[in-house]
Design a protein around this nucleic acid. Sequence first.
DNA 1: CTTATGTCAGTGAAACTGATATTG
DNA 2: CCAATATCAGTTACACTGACATAA
Lengths: 138, 138
Amino acid sequence: MQVEVGTSVGYALKRAQTALHAALDAGLRELDLSVSQYSCLELLRQRPDLTNAELARGAFVTRQAMHQLLGGLRTAGLVAGTGEGRNERIALTPTGLERLERASVIAAAVEQRMLSSLTGDDRRRMHEHLIACVDALA
Amino acid sequence: MQVEVGTSVGYALKRAQTALHAALDAGLRELDLSVSQYSCLELLRQRPDLTNAELARGAFVTRQAMHQLLGGLRTAGLVAGTGEGRNERIALTPTGLERLERASVIAAAVEQRMLSSLTGDDRRRMHEHLIACVDALA
DNA sequence: CTTATGTCAGTGAAACTGATATTG
DNA sequence: CCAATATCAGTTACACTGACATAA
């Protein structure tokens, strides 16, 4: 059994994801946002007024992880909840929306750069295949 | 500026890498190996007798991170160094090689499962495109 | 002298599990 | 009562930066 790291798709996947994360992190630093925080804000823009548990499922993490993430975003004034206890719905604040819009510009630029050498067809195919990988492992 | 997380290649990349990591982690647990440890052993099989600094460069991490990783592998008796100080060369021990061989079987099976719905052409293309992404971000 | 290296120490982000209280 | 939830607390794996002594 020989696993060639040089030709392993898994290895390339890890490298690409690490490189993307590093580039995103560097770009978002000036906005004082981590990659996870940005992802959460993006999710919240598309699906507002979810509960913590629903957000956790949407981001594929535990409730506890999402709770902690939201804590930071609350403190920063980027999200706020309406309602009490388990009825609390989380949504972006105006400040949060404004910050997210700036972050989206940066994130889109990073993704553009990452995909700069690929055709539109290549990008579509890659997306499709990545999702197929997720499904196969689920 | 609207970033659709559903169609973002970066988002799919993250999900795929997370799923792969989780599957690998679950598979390697019975061997008491983390994914990082397994990667380091695999690197060491293909390029034995490197120094800590060389290994770090090969794995794209800092030498401090590699030093810490190697500490665990040394303690577990899976790698050993010959030579003193900065001349020390790291290599797999017989135990390490035996463990790695079992891990390789598991890792290969996980990768096979992940790619099970893709043709050989698809896999080659995907690998190629992932590396193109890494290069574009470097 | 300069540079790369090994190593110690501290830090940080991000996930996890466990436990408890609450509530629909 | 039961299941899902919010939340507090502790832990872990992994990477980072900084600092320092040392050796090529």
